[in-house]
Amino acid sequence: MKSISVEEVQQLLAAGKELNLIDVREVDEVSVGKIPSAINMPLGLIEFRMNELDKSKEYIMVCRSGGRSGQATTFLDNQGFIVMNMDGGMIAWAGDVE
Rank of each mutant, 00 (worst) to 15 (best):
M1C: 15
M1Y: 14
K2P: 15
K2S: 08
K2F: 01
I4A: 14
S5Q: 12
V6C: 06
V6M: 00
V6E: 08
E8K: 08
V9A: 01
Q11K: 12
L12K: 15
L12W: 14
L13F: 10
A14G: 04
A14T: 01
A15R: 08
K17M: 01
K17V: 02
E18H: 13
E18Y: 04
E18G: 01
L19H: 14
N20C: 01
N20Y: 02
L21H: 04
L21R: 07
I22C: 05
V24T: 03
R25W: 03
R25V: 00
V27Q: 10
D28M: 07
D28E: 15
D28W: 09
E29T: 02
E29V: 03
E29H: 07
E29Q: 08
S31H: 07
S31A: 14
G33V: 12
G33W: 06
G33A: 01
I35R: 01
P36Q: 07
P36V: 08
P36F: 03
P36N: 02
P36S: 05
S37T: 11
S37G: 05
S37D: 08
A38T: 01
A38C: 12
A38W: 02
I39Q: 14
M41D: 05
P42D: 04
L43Y: 01
G44L: 05
L45F: 05
L45Q: 04
L45M: 11
L45E: 11
L45C: 03
I46M: 09
I46T: 04
E47P: 12
E47H: 14
F48W: 08
F48R: 08
N51I: 06
N51R: 12
E52C: 04
E52M: 12
D54R: 06
K55V: 06
E58T: 00
Y59W: 02
I60Q: 12
M61L: 15
M61A: 12
C63V: 03
R64Y: 13
S65Q: 04
S65F: 06
S65W: 03
S65M: 10
G66V: 07
G67E: 11
G67R: 06
R68Y: 00
R68P: 03
R68S: 07
S69C: 00
G70N: 06
G70E: 13
Q71T: 14
Q71N: 15
Q71I: 10
A72N: 06
A72H: 00
T74R: 14
T74F: 13
L76H: 05
D77K: 15
D77G: 15
Q79M: 15
F81V: 00
F81R: 02
I82G: 02
I82Y: 07
M84C: 13
M84G: 11
N85L: 01
N85Y: 11
M86N: 11
D87G: 09
G88N: 06
G89C: 07
G89A: 08
G89S: 02
M90D: 12
M90K: 05
I91H: 05
I91S: 10
I91V: 10
I91Q: 12
A92T: 15
A92S: 15
A92H: 14
W93M: 11
A94P: 02
A94W: 03
A94M: 08
G95Q: 00
D96P: 10
D96V: 11
D96L: 14
D96W: 06
D96M: 13
E98R: 10
